[in-house]
Computed example of a mutant assay.
Amino acid sequence: MMSNSTDIAQQKKELRRAIRERKREADRSVMMKESTQIFEEIEKLEAFKTAKVVLAYWSMNDEVFTHDFVMKWYKHKQIYLPLVVGNSLELREFSGMDCMRVGPSFGILEPQEGAIYDNRPIDFAIIPGVAFDIKGNRMGRGKAYYDKLLRTNSMLKIGVAYSFQMVKSVPTDEFDIPMDLVISAK
């Protein structure tokens, strides 16, 4: 008989595979349109309007597109972006495209220069994921980078998802950190 954690790991693996397939079939123009809708919703939130320090991310090709949002807001708010350092995320302040370099872990642009996060309170966090459910459960890529980061920082956690990333139920274990709100184009 399989243990519960083995069972959950298998469910997560199957869900990641299913979402990967949906991403492959997704229309890029629809994904861009949904990204715009998601960030229009974020900008309407009072918590975002009053936030001074924001955690965001520089999106990979298959994630909700953040580049325009980051570029629009970094001169008005302190925007921190993660970069992968070993088995965890380090946060650096985004100060424009000059601070971005291709990082070694995923071959994506990461803030290689700029102020390192100094543990000041983060008011608002925009978190990517592979899949989300309406209860706020999130499943990432399986490295637990965000779960480790979110466990040690109390902040308003907003998951962002394409409509095809919203599922009925995300399998979770005790290490998974739920979102306070998930915003999808649906």
Rank of each mutant, 00 (worst) to 15 (best):
E43H: 02
Y57I: 10
L150Y: 10
M2P: 11
A9L: 11
N119V: 00
S5P: 00
N153K: 11
I116W: 00
R151Y: 07
G129P: 01
K168N: 14
R120E: 12
K148S: 09
G136M: 13
L156H: 12
F175I: 07
L55V: 09
P178F: 02
D173M: 07
K135T: 14
T66W: 06
E113F: 07
Q11M: 08
R101A: 12
S5K: 09
K77I: 10
K186E: 13
L55E: 10
N61D: 15
F39S: 04
F69Q: 07
Y74G: 06
F175L: 12
F48D: 12
M139A: 10
R28H: 11
R17K: 15
F69T: 06
F39K: 03
S154I: 11
F132P: 08
F69L: 08
D147I: 09
E41C: 02
N4D: 09
P121Y: 04
E14C: 11
G96F: 04
S95L: 10
K12R: 15
A51K: 12
D7Q: 13
I177N: 03
T50H: 10
L55M: 14
Q37H: 03
S88I: 00
Y146P: 11
L89M: 03
V30S: 08
T66P: 04
L150I: 09
R28L: 12
V130G: 01
E25Y: 02
S59D: 10
I116D: 00
G159K: 02
V54F: 06
Q112M: 13
F175W: 09
N119S: 11
D123M: 07
K168L: 06
G103V: 08
Q11Y: 01
M60L: 14
P128F: 03
S184H: 11
V53N: 15
R138P: 09
V167W: 07
A18H: 09
L15M: 15
V102T: 15
D133S: 13
K148D: 07
K75R: 15
R92N: 05
V85D: 05
M139I: 13
V70A: 03
V160D: 02
M179K: 00
E43A: 12
Q78C: 06
H76K: 15
E113Q: 13
R101S: 12
I116A: 10
R24Y: 03
E90Q: 12
A185C: 12
D118K: 12
K135W: 05
S3H: 06
K143Y: 01
P121F: 03
F39L: 07
D133T: 11
I108N: 03
E113M: 10
M166E: 11
E46M: 02
W73Q: 13
E34A: 04
Y57E: 10
A115W: 00
S29D: 14
R101N: 10
L83P: 00
K52N: 14
